[in-house]
Nucleic acid binder design. Structure first.
Lengths: 169, 169
DNA sequence: AAGGATCGTCTGTGCAGCACAAACTATTTA
DNA sequence: TAAATAGTTTGTGCTGCACAGACGATCCTT
């Protein structure tokens, strides 16, 4: 519990710049708006928003054990199983047993998965246009970059392993 | 249904610059992580994440009718009622009948509401630190600004009505 | 080799968010 | 007066999700 707000101008020397600008609620709000639109757009592709999230994380993170995935996504591992089952049934991911520890399933995006993910992202363009309509392309890119950095922990400059997987174009 | 993707390299001259950088999944992911932390932090204040979202929108938007609110939040209006009932019971918002159209309830943040919102945002600082740990303060401010602009439609510069309401302390 | 810990899987249970529908009041508008 | 609109209330059902229990497979001890 700090000073709460700027108050009456007699704050010592606290910069107070970014002060109470908490992004949480806005994040929630926009994510919801996005999700609502995504669902209908994604349905024809046989995906749901959370599949997209998982695929995105996998694309960024490479071969991950599923309990590591559970940690990243902050989901219960039992629910991860179902999620991955869906994706594996569609051959968008692959579960391979880790050679080091054969209990472990290493989850990886397949070529199909990367492709489908790109398609989905492409299909989401109009949804994003609606939700982020107030931002110009440069701002959206900035937003993407910030979100990307935040979500992959402290990754400074690795936001472009992204296009590596699927563009044999 | 456009061309789906770049496919086989015979795309005309599409720049393809920011290309497939869709923020949807990242937004979802971060919002979830944020929400999980928020819930426990907010509980002692008698609030839940969605209350925060509603309060935030109200703070930004001023006196809104509840069906307008339903549109903004993209929630069913029946659920808005319950949400507002919660907030009104805690005297964080006020429902006044609109003088122009007495059917309409104009919803407004009370002084208490603004205060509580600030407290909540303050309490969320640590949660945000965890989730946005990879971003420095300037970047977080940028993020906030982008999210704020996006969520209030095309609002360029009205993010600081914030500190006006509650500081008679 | 035996014991316990760990990873993943499957099943089931229960709660909460939320959309949807129907019925009602108060009020405005045609 | 009749119809449309804003809000409220209640109920129903689906879905997401956490949580728990049980199981097989595989490590890691000792």
């Amino acid at each position: 519990m700090f000073r709460q707000l700027g108050r009456l101008g007699h704050m010592p020397a606290t910069p107070l710049e970014s002060s109470e600008h908490r992004s949480g609620a806005l994040l929630d709000h926009l994510a919801r708006r996005m999700r609502l639109r995504s669902e209908s757009v994604l349905a024809p592709l046989g995906l749901r928003p959370r599949h997209l999230v998982a695929l995105t994380v996998l694309r960024a993170g490479g071969g991950t054990g599923q309990q590591a995935l559970a940690t990243i996504l902050e989901m219960d591992s039992t629910n991860i199983v179902g999620l991955l089952n869906d994706l594996e049934a569609k051959q968008l991911i692959e579960r391979r047993r880790s050679p080091e520890d054969r209990r472990r399933h290493v989850v990886e995006l397949t070529a199909d998965g990367a492709k489908r993910l790109s398609e989905a992202e492409c299909a989401l363009a109009s949804a994003e246009d609606e939700v982020l309509g107030a931002l110009d392309p440069a701002e959206r890119e900035t937003l993407y970059e910030l979100l990307s950095r935040a979500s992959t922990g402290t990754a400074p400059n690795c936001t472009e392993a992204i296009c590596a997987a699927d563009d044999p174009l």
